[in-house]
């Protein structure tokens, strides 16, 4: 029997999943799933006729060839690996229980663009200090995920060995570590990978928060006013100019202060009626509108807002927003 190569005939977004279901994606890559028996019509521009033909073709092809098609097998293997990698990556993130113990009332909106993510959050507690990090590694998907693995590992090392309790010193050392690991020496032809991140260290005894940022700001909402703490304009990794020390911002915190840390994924997401970026202005307004709600509601509203903003558009980057309230 003549078998058609799926590379030639399968439209974009159609692939087999591990449990032998069919998955058809729309143009904007928003997946929807169904059993082979219950495929639903996609809400994209594909005509009903084409969809029916496609369905017949797929059913035929999967029922006969799915176990012997090498490309299908390869595809399935890669997908399985990615799913597993995603699980590992999630396992490396701090658990909800740990986050709750360290921060109390908090939320994390963590929406990887793909199965694995270049964004990550990290938290640790040492002596009377709680260290919280929201990081956005160069790239997304697998390269981003690899970079995030490096970032998490380096953070573990640096924070563990740090005895200064100052985020700027930690970021300085983290940058050294990343540069060392990636053999970055400022040469033209080497990888420029790195991370943008915001790090804050909470000292509940002294009611102080120290913040240092690498291209990633921190928002503090107090008494209905949002204050943006600007980051240093350099990444954790090699930069075009010589490394400079990161700055340290010391903030006296008060009860009910709301702190937000995030990657650029939310503000840079395209969508809306004119397919534009969400941008930081509306993001700040949104936070101002919702900051008095409880953390779970804030999470749900942010998620709903960005999904609705995205509509049929593709998610362009990993999204991470963290918020917590000072108790």
């Amino acid at each position: 029997m003549f078998i058609l190569s799926p590379a030639n005939y399968l439209p974009n977004g159609l692939f087999a999943t591990k449990d032998d279901n069919l998955s058809v994606t729309t143009e904007n890559k928003m997946p929807f799933r169904s059993n082979t028996c219950n495929l639903e019509a996609p809400h994209n521009k594909t005509s009903p006729l084409l969809f029916n033909n496609l369905l017949i073709f797929c059913t035929f092809r999967f029922s006969i060839n799915k176990m012997v098609d090498p490309l299908y097998i390869r595809n399935r293997e890669i997908s399985e690996s990615l799913r597993y990698a995603g699980m590992i990556q999630k396992a490396l993130l701090p658990s909800e229980a740990l986050m709750e113990r360290m921060l109390g009332e908090y939320f994390t909106l963590y929406m990887p663009k793909e199965v694995v993510s270049g964004d990550f959050f990290w938290a640790s507690s040492k002596n009377r200090h709680t260290v919280i990090v929201a990081a956005d590694c160069t790239g997304h998907g697998v390269p981003g995920a690899l970079m995030s693995m490096l970032g998490i590992s380096c953070l573990n090392d640096v924070v563990q060995s740090d005895c200064t309790g100052k985020p700027d010193r930690i970021l300085n050392r983290l940058r050294e570590k990343v540069m060392e690991c990636l053999n970055q020496t400022g040469n033209f032809d080497e990888a420029k990978d790195g991370m943008d991140l915001s790090m804050c260290i909470l000292d509940h005894e002294k009611s102080e928060l120290q913040y240092s940022g690498a291209n990633s700001p921190l928002y503090l909402i107090r008494n209905g006013r949002l204050k943006e703490i600007k980051p240093d304009k350099m990444p954790v990794g090699i930069n075009a100019v010589d490394e400079m020390p990161f700055s340290n911002h010391l903030i006296k915190i008060r009860k009910n202060d709301r702190i937000y840390m995030f990657s650029d994924g939310f503000a840079d997401q395209f969508g809306g009626p004119r397919g534009k970026k969400f941008k930081y202005g509306p993001f700040k307004s949104l936070l101002m509108d919702i900051h008095l709600k409880n953390m779970k509601d804030q999470h749900d509203i942010l998620k709903g807002t960005i999904e609705s903003w995205m509509g049929n558009n593709e998610q362009i980057d990993d999204i991470l927003v963290m918020g917590f309230v000072i108790t």
Binding site: D157, V158, R173, R175, E176, K177, V178, M179, E180, C181, L182, N183, Q184, T185, G186, I238, D242, E243
Partner: peptide, 11 residues
């Protein structure tokens, strides 16, 4: 900056 005068990661 002042001693080895090199851009290199030193962890």
């Amino acid at each position: 900056k002042h001693i080895i005068k090199k851009r290199v990661g030193i962890s």
